[in-house]
Amino acid sequence: MANVTLGGTPVETIGNLPAVGSKAPDFKLTDTDLSDQSYSNFEGSRLVLNIFPSVDTGTCAQSIRTFNEKVSQLDNTKVLCISKDLPFAMARFCGAEGIENVVSLSDYKTGKFGKDYGLTFTTGAFETLLSRCIVVIDTDGTVLHTEQVSEIADEPNYEAAIKSLA
């Protein structure tokens, strides 16, 4: 289990992120149109999984904006923004912000993604939500980079994620 902080208060997650060099676990998440999306829908693309507690917080919203801008310039790369928000909230945010270069997905139905990737909070005010993490996956499913942000209010290291795709 990973130890991170929320406003300086220690909180725990259910496990640890997949190891760099390992195969990314499969997933089934819900798209904004309520369709199911699994890893196989994105096979052959490089993926940046931008994982966060809720689109309705400033840092989470900023991470979507930043990845929307930065990764849109990279070939064969998709950004999957993943939270437990309802798909309607993700669609509303992206529509209002004019965000078109990311795929918004939700783990609200089963929570299995958060468990399989080891990043669901098990303690604290955000218990059962997803921790702020970045997982970068190559075209063959190999994990290239991971980051579990140590303080939930902080933004991830965008440059490290993008550098791992070089």
Score class of each variant (00 low, 15 high):
71 V>G: 11
15 G>N: 05
17 L>C: 06
52 F>Y: 14
92 R>F: 10
67 F>K: 00
16 N>I: 14
135 V>N: 05
91 A>C: 05
67 F>P: 01
3 N>V: 09
2 A>P: 04
152 I>F: 02
121 F>H: 07
79 V>E: 04
120 T>C: 13
112 K>T: 07
89 A>I: 03
122 T>S: 14
5 T>R: 04
124 G>F: 07
134 I>A: 03
41 N>W: 03
93 F>Y: 11
56 D>S: 05
1 M>D: 06
119 L>G: 08
40 S>L: 05
108 Y>H: 14
35 S>M: 07
58 G>E: 09
36 D>F: 10
138 D>E: 05
100 E>L: 10
71 V>M: 07
4 V>I: 14
43 E>V: 02
140 D>Y: 04
153 A>Y: 01
17 L>Q: 00
11 V>W: 05
17 L>A: 09
141 G>S: 10
89 A>Q: 09
14 I>H: 01
27 F>D: 05
10 P>A: 14
112 K>S: 11
81 C>W: 07
96 A>D: 15
43 E>T: 15
145 H>P: 02
12 E>D: 15
22 S>Q: 01
86 L>I: 10
147 E>A: 11
6 L>V: 11
128 T>D: 07
3 N>H: 15
10 P>W: 09
12 E>T: 15
109 K>Y: 08
82 I>S: 09
109 K>V: 01
70 K>M: 03
64 I>R: 01
125 A>D: 11
123 T>W: 11
71 V>P: 01
65 R>L: 14
17 L>E: 00
27 F>Q: 00
132 R>D: 03
92 R>T: 12
55 V>R: 02
53 P>D: 13
73 Q>P: 11
116 D>Y: 05
146 T>M: 09
55 V>E: 00
15 G>Y: 14
107 D>G: 10
104 S>W: 00
22 S>K: 02
83 S>Y: 03
139 T>Q: 14
9 T>W: 03
130 L>N: 13
46 R>N: 15
86 L>V: 03
101 N>Q: 09
7 G>D: 13
17 L>P: 00
112 K>N: 09
106 S>E: 13
10 P>R: 04
157 N>D: 15
46 R>S: 14
14 I>G: 01
138 D>I: 15
18 P>G: 08
37 Q>E: 12
19 A>Q: 15
120 T>R: 12
80 L>A: 09
66 T>H: 13
56 D>Y: 07
62 Q>E: 13
80 L>G: 10
91 A>D: 11
144 L>H: 03
134 I>P: 00
98 G>Y: 12
135 V>H: 02
35 S>H: 14
101 N>C: 06
52 F>K: 00
30 T>V: 13
28 K>L: 13
96 A>C: 08
151 E>N: 11
165 L>F: 06
113 F>W: 01
149 V>N: 06
58 G>W: 04
154 D>E: 04
125 A>V: 12
60 C>S: 05
164 S>T: 07
130 L>R: 08
76 N>W: 10
137 I>N: 00
88 F>K: 11
163 K>L: 07
144 L>P: 10
